[in-house]
Amino acid sequence: MTILDQLPALVAAMRRNAVRGLTLGDAETRLTLRLADVMAEAPMAPAAIVAPTVTRALSPEMGVFRLGAEGAQTGAQVACGTILGFVEIGPALLPIPSPAAGTLSAVLAEDGAPIGFHAPAFEITDA
């Protein structure tokens, strides 16, 4: 199953949770979804509320997940490219950079636990 097969469910979940933008990917590839307004179901949304865009930072490899020393606390402001954590493969540490600037809204993996190839490791919210 590819991400495209999951689009309908993903869009439905975004609508349910009022998420209008979502970026998935890593440093090399990225897919950004921005939902159009659903006119029939959006009678008079307050103009001041802008739904945040959530971006996930994926593990570049299978290995042991390690939280970054700094800036990897939930709620921290991060820049695009900030190293949030690492994947440990034997003696090697592969960095997990933030794919976007924003607030680190969730750490999705446990420090010291196995993490799979391209598994989500962090969530960054842009607003």
């Binding site: 199953m1 299978m62 799979g116 190839f117 391209h118 598994a119």
Partner: peptide
């Protein structure tokens, strides 16, 4: 990721592309 046996195993891990 959607293989049937992955629901049955105790642990699953994505190993590569």
């Amino acid at each position: 990721a959607g293989l049937a046996h992955l629901r049955l195993v105790d642990q699953r891990i994505c190993i590569g592309p």
